[in-house]
Design a protein around this nucleic acid. Structure first.
Length: 875
RNA sequence: GGACGACUAGCUCAGCUGGUUAGAGCACUGCAUUCACAUUGCAGGGGUCACAAGUUCGAAUCUUGUGUCGUCCACCA
């Protein structure tokens, strides 16, 4: 048997292991079925990978999602389920186009308009192709066991067919419509974006009070006010009782006299300012709604480049930012400016994709009507209702469940979804026009003279189909039947609305099914101070950097342990380093076990233990298998990892292996334990476990394809645990005294034990205790005399231990040491006595609790009295 | 304005449906180095569980309120 190197070197193994996995075919469920016995009876388990942007690079957000999903996938695969993890990338229309536009402009000083649509798109596609391999290879670096044979792209042919089919179906159902509606226009990007793509930024600006006829109106945006000719007030506002709805009046305004009309509408807030406002329906969503309600005129003031139109008179052609102070000047000279509030705080809409300030505009766009009725199973339904029902009736479970509320609240406030964009990269709206004719279809219409709609679709439209478009829809493929609905969707809570909700919308509509049964939402990875990682703060922890420094397993583990659903987590390099230490510990545990085993063998059946320690470690391992399994089933990955870590380090390495050195001859049991813990750890730390597996079993099988361990609870587990705990506390007590009294490690001092009940057990265990505590001769008896120069302590069930110091004992020091013990025990005994003398407690508390307290009281009393006796005997 | 989350040892967090003498990792202190591992071992110090009131025989855990921090949502011009 070849010896393992002293330390685990992740770099030496990882890439080769990933290749080995890919060659094994186990990533592909079809191969898995063939290679393993399980077939028809096995359950399917499927996850679609939230597709990373095709032009992106791996960041901690990706790393955490890959780690969590790979834990689930590997666990279910090992359980024997037919497990599919389907990869893909997202064309991320806006992000990618913006990136390429910038690159081209920086290098060649050309805009996309300079290049033309065709040429520009060729460049974007080329970039996406080149960039694709980067992100894919980075996913592999994380050890993700994805089935690359099924890889998809949101913009490939199969997905394009799905997108067009879906669009046409919704169009035919009247759910997709085209209309003049107010949209969020980004003048910088020259496209509109959906409501969810807006980021509100708080800003302190000046707020102007202007005279408008007999009224005073307030505005933060005087540059939009040129055309204002409606005065809106609340119908119940007593101050303006004398004005009638529809009443006309003359006002002196920016460009001279204007005829204004009174509008009574509840949208006016009586408590705000003067309670009176003028409206600009073309550039404000609220105003637009008011105008819609009362069928008012709308007029465009600002063009799509953010410049003022001729209605602004002498300001026409000016950018709104430069025009504002000039307009204020004019208002002043005309005597229309009443006052200015310089510290007005309000929120400005910006494009979250780094675009400019949003200027609402009315434009003819494509929308998905979320409240439009359509037929479904003989009933009239709406998309909103379908989305609500899927979660409300329990078809989809969201973890953590508090996000249910967030989800419902979002749906309640949901407006029609604007799906058309004026950018070029993406799915073209599948609609063609010829004169007054309109054609919507999967293929372009026959005949000449048709022109296609120039707009593209919101990237989330194609992402919304992801769970089923990746499985082959609209074709009725085997995959679609086998793996849909998918089992789990795992993603960050920050895209609950963007993506999760949209998938529910699309899937319930198109398939009448939910896209997934469980949604697991992870939190954001933040820096050690809890700040978001960002380039400008320079606090980014690069997962690839962590991998190269500490290994993939350590990086993964640091993202799993201490990470709970829906909560953000803090990450530091120190944390990753800590798990690198653990990786090495596991490696060395294996190294030790191999050195102590004659021949490595795969042992799946739990062997019988001979000694107490054997039995104990088997009890603990069995409990660990059960606990880890339960935790994983409950999506409690962090606790599963901690459970395993505790077993491996605290129980196996610190106790059992040390005892194995003394007892020896443990081939069978060591083989079994090693085999089992490698399997248990594999989902969390795939590389180091596979590396050990390959070294141990000479590459005959892959751990990736091994079966998850199972074990029935052992009988007499409780007795075994108690006896072992007694042994542990004796060892710990002895070590503490050695440490306290600075006893040289080479000094093997004699120990005597007084015990009634455990004499035989302790006699059997003395060789182990002697070795672990490094003591000398050990006497166990029912009543031994305490040596003159000795110190003592008491452990469970009244076992008294005397350590013979073979010299003079510092009586004062010993008295103090015992006193300290008395000081902690005495109040405890008192509190237990008080509790048990309380009749209310004895009658109301369950008898098991009362019994337990009694037991503790007796035990502690006995211990305390012995310690007091020891203290007395000192003098 | 509404909703949600967090507040437990110096730091990061466990503590499930109320009963433990409140735990872990890191950091800290002391000791230890042929014998799997110093990316280590052994022993230790450290917490009025944010605050207040309530329910209960019993509260870190349940209820209500307060505070601090954070997140999301909302058409106040």
């Amino acid at each position: 048997m070849k010896e393992l190197s002293k330390a685990y070197e992740a770099k030496k193994y990882e890439d080769a292991i990933y290749k080995r996995w890919e060659q094994s075919g186990f990533f592909d469920p079809d191969v898995c079925i063939k290679k393993r016995v399980s077939k028809k009876t096995a359950k399917p388990f499927s996850i679609v990978l939230p597709p990373p942007n095709v032009t992106g690079t791996l960041h901690m957000g990706h790393a955490v999602m890959l780690a969590v999903q790979d834990v689930m996938i590997r666990y279910h695969r090992m359980k024997g389920e037919i497990t599919l993890w389907l990869p893909g990338t997202d064309h991320a229309a806006i992000a990618t186009q913006t990136k390429v536009e910038k690159m081209i402009f920086d290098a060649e000083h050309k805009t996309r308009q300079d290049m033309g649509r065709e040429a520009f798109l060729r460049r974007v596609e080329q970039f996406a192709r080149e960039s694709h391999d980067t992100i894919v290879n980075q996913c592999k670096k994380m050890g993700a066991s994805l089935d690359w044979s099924r890889e998809a792209f949101t913009l490939d042919d199969a997905r394009t067919l799905a997108v067009r089919t879906m669009f046409k179906q919704m169009y035919d159902d009247g759910i997709i419509y085209r209309g003049d509606r107010i949209v969020n226009w980004d003048p910088v990007m020259q496209s509109n974006v959906s409501d969810d793509e807006i980021e509100w930024k708080e800003e302190t600006t000046a707020f102007y009070y202007l005279k408008y006829g007999p009224f005073v109106i307030g505005t933060a945006r005087p540059e939009t006010k040129f055309g204002d000719k409606y005065i809106v007030m609340h119908p119940d506002d007593q101050r303006y009782k004398k004005y009638q709805h529809g009443q006309k009046l003359e006002a002196d305004w920016l460009n001279g006299k204007i005829t204004a009309t009174i509008v009574k509408d509840k949208a006016a807030d009586m408590a705000f300012g003067t309670g009176v406002m003028t409206i600009t329906p073309w550039h404000d969503a609220t105003d637009f709604d008011i105008a819609l309600r009362h069928k008012l005129d709308r007029e465009q003031i600002i063009d799509y480049n953010g410049k003022l139109l001729p209605i602004a008179g002498e300001f026409a052609g000016l950018d709104i930012v430069e025009a504002r102070p000039k307009i204020i000047e004019k208002l002043k000279t005309r005597g229309l400016l009443e006052t200015i509030d310089e510290k007005y705080v309000h929120r400005v809409a910006t494009n979250y994709r780094g675009g400019g300030v949003i200027e609402p505009q009315i434009r003819k766009q494509w929308f998905i009507g979320v409240t439009r009725e359509f037929q479904r199973g003989g009933k009239k339904v709406t998309l909103k209702k379908l989305m609500q029902a899927a979660v409300k009736n329990g078809d989809i479970e969201i973890i953590p469940d508090r996000f249910n509320k967030t989800y419902f609240h979002w749906i309640d406030n949901l407006r029609d979804w604007c799906i058309s964009r004026q950018i070029w990269y993406g799915h073209r709206v599948p609609v063609w026009y010829r004169g007054n004719e309109v054609f919507c279809g999967v293929q372009s219409p026959k005949g000449a003279g048709w022109e296609q709609d120039p707009d593209t679709l919101d990237t989330w439209f194609s992402s919304g189909l992801w769970t089923f478009s990746t499985l082959g829809w609209p074709k009725k493929t085997k995959d679609l039947v086998a793996y849909h609905p998918t089992s789990v969707l795992e993603t960050g809570y920050d895209i609950l609305f963007f993506w999760v909700a949209r998938m529910i919308l699309m899937t319930t509509y198109a398939l009448g099914k939910v896209p997934f049964q469980t949604v697991y939402l992870h939190g954001l990875v933040r820096d050690e101070q809890g700040r978001k990682m960002s380039k400008s703060l320079g606090n980014i922890i690069d997962p690839l950097d962590m991998i190269s420094q500490f290994g993939t397993d350590a990086t993964r583990l640091s993202l799993i342990v201490g990470n709970t659903p829906g909560n953000d987590m803090k990450l530091s390099e120190a944390k990753v380093a800590g798990f690198r230490n653990f990786t090495n510990k596991l490696w060395n545990v294996a190294r030790f076990m191999l050195l102590n085993v004659k021949k490595p063998k795969v042992i799946i059946q739990r062997p019988q233990g001979k000694t107490l320690a054997d039995k104990w470690i088997l009890v603990r391992l069995t409990a660990t298998i059960q606990e880890v399994t339960t935790r994983l089933e409950a999506y409690n990955f962090s606790l599963a990892g901690e459970t395993l870590r505790r077993f491996t380090w605290d129980e196996l390495a610190d106790w059992y292996l040390e005892i194995a050195k003394v007892e020896g001859n443990k081939d069978r049991i060591l083989n079994y334990i090693l085999n089992t813990i490698l399997k248990l750890w594999h989902p969390f730390m795939p590389f180091v476990t596979e590396a050990i597996w390959q070294e141990v079993y000479r590459g005959k099988t892959v751990l990736l394809g091994a079966r998850w361990p199972e074990a029935n609870t052992l009988t007499s587990a409780k007795k075994i645990t108690q006896e072992f705990a007694l042994m542990q506390s004796i060892v710990i007590g002895l070590r503490a005294i050695r440490s306290d009294y600075r006893i040289d490690p080479a000094n093997k001092i004699p120990v005597l034990m007084n015990t009634r009940k455990q004499k035989k057990l302790l006699q059997t265990l003395s060789p182990v205790i002697r070795d672990l505590a490094r003591t000398g001769e050990m006497t166990v008896a029912t009543s031994v005399k305490r040596p003159v120069a000795s110190v003592a302590f008491v452990v469970q069930t009244g076992v008294e231990v005397f350590v013979d110091l073979l010299g003079v004992v510092d009586k004062e020091k010993e008295r103090m040491r015992l006193q300290k013990e008395i000081d902690t025990l005495a109040p405890y005994v008192a509190s237990l006595e008080k509790k048990l003398s309380n009749e209310q407690f004895v009658t109301n508390a369950p008898s098991s609790v009362v019994d337990e307290q009694r037991r503790k009281l007796n035990e502690t009393r006995e211990k305390l009295s012995k310690i007091i006796a020891q203290q007395k005997s000192l003098s």
